[in-house]
Write a protein that binds this DNA or RNA. Structure first.
Length: 259
DNA sequence: ATGGCGACACAATGTCGA
């Protein structure tokens, strides 16, 4: 089972790009972030024509997450538990059926800038809720994948210019500590379990020629429960997608599970 | 230190992202 996470920066603006990617790369499951669409306006047909089941959790204008899956999906839930008043569409879960059923969570973690401030407070509170959900899911002792745009640069080696991000909400010590607390519950960060060292990024800003200068950051992650980590056979960043026609500013990140 | 880009809501600029 090949699972990809991909912040597409608007499904309406990116539809041709995403369809070309699906045709070339053919993931079994794709977790999309920043669909920037309400559910009723999401262009389901071209995905369904390609054999994908489509589940969305959108809102008007911003945010929004979706799951595309060639395998059946069960028990779909929307919204991160822990704050009934949170109206931002940033979380969707489903169980993907297969040789092993896998609980898959697609997330779009808040950016949090400027920090300090209310947006940063929201980010940290959201991460506390994520930690609680991650802990609950771990207790199931089933394969679990928490994947998406975390808006977290875990370590300095995950940025081409770490000094430029030192006081940014993506890299502040409190942000990194909150991310580590989740990993330290018992999750495996898929990419770093397989690839070490600097120079691996998943986002390049549209501005100032960031892609051509490889001035990137690694902020899209897949966290695997022990039962999922045991099934991992591959993890890679599909960086070449950043150089294609009308790209998102993020690229897909992949994990393959023997499930 | 900032935000040069890009998407979106809404109708010319403002907000947001990272």
């Amino acid at each position: 089972m090949r699972i990809a996470t991909y912040n597409i920066n608007g499904v309406k603006a990116r539809i041709e790009t995403v369809l070309a990617w699906l045709d070339d790369s053919a993931p079994d499951v794709a977790l999309l972030q920043e669909i920037k669409s309400v559910d009723e306006a999401f262009p389901r047909a071209p995905f369904e024509e390609r054999g994908y089941n489509v589940e969305t959790h959108g809102q008007k204008g911003f945010n929004g997450v979706a799951i595309l899956s060639k395998r059946p999906l069960e028990d779909v839930t929307r919204g991160l538990p822990g704050d009934a008043g949170d109206e931002q569409a940033r979380w969707i879960e489903a169980t993907v059926m297969g040789a092993r059923a896998v609980r898959i969570c697609g997330l779009y973690l808040p950016n949090g800038n400027p920090a300090p401030g209310p947006k940063y407070d929201y980010k940290l509170a959201w991460m506390t809720r994520l930690e609680a959900r991650a802990k609950t899911l771990l207790a199931s002792e089933e394969p679990v994948v928490l994947a998406g745009d975390y808006n977290v640069i875990p370590q300095d080696e995950d940025a081409a210019r770490p000094e430029a991000w030192a006081s940014d909400a993506l890299a502040l010590p409190q942000t990194r500590a909150a991310f580590r607390r989740i990993v330290n519950l018992g999750y495996t960060e898929a990419f770093r379990a397989r690839v070490q060292g600097p120079g691996h990024y998943s986002f390049w800003d549209y501005q100032a020629g960031a892609w051509s200068r490889n001035d990137g950051i690694r902020i899209d992650h897949l966290l695997l429960s022990p039962q999922a980590a045991d099934l991992m056979t591959e993890c890679r960043i599909e960086a070449e997608q950043r150089g294609r026609e009308k790209p998102s500013d993020h690229v897909p990140v992949w994990v393959t599970l023997d499930a």
